[in-house]
Design a protein around this nucleic acid. Structure first.
Lengths: 226, 226
DNA sequence: AGTTGTGAACACGTTCACAGCC
DNA sequence: GGCTGTGAACGTGTTCACAACT
């Protein structure tokens, strides 16, 4: 047990971030009836190099067969276990604006082992409103959701002005994992993990790259002119 | 000019990814009437260390004053230029499901220099439907959007089954930057930049961390028991 | 005195090259 | 023969320590 625990503790963050991609590829392969897969094939399906895939998998343990490859079902089960997806994870979405409503209507959560147990908003005017078949509930319901439903993950879809407050209330209620869609930096105590997803940031990074190709094209043109 | 181009080319990817955060923090400071800021203060606002902030900014040039700090407006202008945000970037959103509609209704694009020039869907039944004040247009409009509107960035919000096709059509029309929300690995030719944003992946990474704290708590308990 | 800018040291992540095994 | 698993080499990214400057 200490061996497995040590191994698990030791998975590098960068590897963990790729495991969901491998799991997705394996699930697709299993759906097509594929029984066994080589690191080269699986790596292609997941968009990484086969060396990196094997290095990542080596952190989980030794589940391949040399000269043959990996058993699809087995490897999917091992990754599922490593990610902690053998149980359902209750999720609450905070902030019922456009984005929050879209997330509430998204069917992908349940498919992958996450259960949306509540939709919350701090605005009393929205309370009780029906969103995707669920009522909007007040922030004061949070402690009860943690105690009774085992709420573990909070999704923040508020405007950036309300994000820190939403986060503080999630943390105060006992939530340790937060997915933040608001363009704001959240301060949290040690032991709480925040992941940020920001649309504008992504577009700005793409703008940087777009500008690079525009600049390169302009340089080529002026060289031709010169 | 070659000096600026060389400098610009040399910005590490990790730094580029943080520049939008600095810009956001600077914009907030400017809005509060702040004229000058130290690396320590700005770093706190952006959620990074002051050393990292200074190292990142050093890739852009030397815009601070030793013993004093940075001029807020000036630095914001420099980062804006480095990211290529001195021009507007036309964006098209492909896929008018829940997520696509939420993105279409999102007001944050325009605020940050991106203009949504078209909403597209491959399903003929949606054509012409009004979404957030704009008509849904067919994929065949793409070449014209690139030629006439300068469309540069494509946002893919289709189901994963349609993502590669949507991407292929964007690339064929001349789009070089793609923001992909579909849980799929996109194959693109050299010179095309794809950034992926996947909800399920993020939640699964959080599940991994949530499981770690659960496992640690269990270990502590059994130690106490033992 | 105070703060920036940066070379050097360090840590982390990826790729290479090949030993180990079926 | 073929494919996995992994130590070593390499490269990128972060932090340290301090020189440079106002």
């Amino acid at each position: 047990m200490s061996d497995a625990a040590t191994t698990r503790r030791g998975i590098p963050e960068a590897s963990v971030a790729r495991l969901p991609g491998y799991l997705r590829a394996l699930t697709a392969l299993a759906g097509h009836g594929v029984i066994s897969v080589s690191s080269e094939e699986l790596a292609n399906a997941a968009g990484v190099s086969s060396t990196m895939l094997r290095k990542d998998l080596s952190h989980l343990g030794s589940y391949g067969v040399r000269g043959v490859g990996y058993d699809v079902e087995r490897l999917a089960a091992e990754i599922t276990a490593a990610l902690g997806l053998t149980r359902e994870w209750p999720v609450a979405i905070v902030g019922m604006g456009n984005l929050g409503r879209a997330l509430a209507a998204y069917r992908g959560f349940e498919e992958r082992g996450f259960e949306v147990v509540a939709l919350l908003d701090g605005d009393p005017r929205l309370l009780g409103e029906d969103v995707a078949g669920r009522p909007v509930r007040p922030m004061s319901d949070l402690p009860g959701l943690v105690a009774e439903e085992g709420l573990a993950i909070g999704v923040i879809a508020t405007p950036s002005s309300g994000a820190q407050d939403a986060c503080d209330r999630l943390v105060a209620a006992g939530v340790r994992s937060v997915l933040n869609f608001a363009p704001a930096v959240l301060a949290v105590p040690d032991g709480v993990v925040v992941r940020n997803v920001d649309l504008s940031t992504e577009l700005q990074i793409l703008a940087f790259h777009g500008q690079r190709v525009a600049a390169a094209a302009a340089a080529t043109t002026s060289e031709v002119v010169a």
